[in-house]
Amino acid sequence: MVETREQKERGSIKIFIQVRDLHKDFKLGKEDINILKGINLDIEQGEMVALLGPSGSGKSTFLNVLGGLVPPTSGDIMIRDYHISEMLENELCLFRREHLGFIFQSYNLISTMTAMENVALALTFAGVKKEIRKKRAIEALEVVGLVDRMGHKPSELSGGQQQRVSIARALVNHPEIILADEPTGNLDSKTSADIMEMIYRLNREENQTFVIVTHDPDTTKYCTKVIHMQDGLIESEVNQ
């Protein structure tokens, strides 16, 4: 892969996610602190991108801006033909519902709901009928190998199992993009490897695009692109 950025923009290869001069400031008292200081990035469909960097470098902030959870201060984000940086909150909700899946370090499951209900919840808002919701939730749990635990509450599951439920939830809508913020951060190395294998498999089989924030250099071996962030900027971008 030796195409230049210009070649990509001419359309020989489809750019799926395009980030241009992205800035994000946070107000701290009266002061504005710059967290993202002008990020430029292109990601193609089906890529698996690892985002590395020291703590506080702005990885999570970048991912959240990318997913429309936080508005950027300036700059442009295009996903497919959607102008994320210019969408209103309600449009972003609809966009997330149809195109995006999130995986968090802390799983973020709803504690009062069973595994199956947690997975099906994502479909509720998409207006999918109840029977179909259940069927698709079970399918998604099958993919992550947790069908036998679908009636369990999060508190009755191990960390790895909870993370697999949250992956099933991210998958159930068949989104084109999955954003994962340290998905293996709370897991031991064996479980981390299992989870990464699974993500890799999904990436291959479903051609889903992944952006994964990680501290673990081991996980980068599954990725097509490894990005190092430093102090709010991309320090290096390696395609492999």
């Binding site: 909150e89 973020n108 709803i110």
Partner: peptide, 16 residues
């Protein structure tokens, strides 16, 4: 609050 946040992240709209 956390539950509401999760729902919004996975696609619940303001009116939902």
């Amino acid at each position: 609050t956390k539950e509401i946040g999760i729902m919004k992240v996975i696609g619940a709209s303001i009116s939902d």
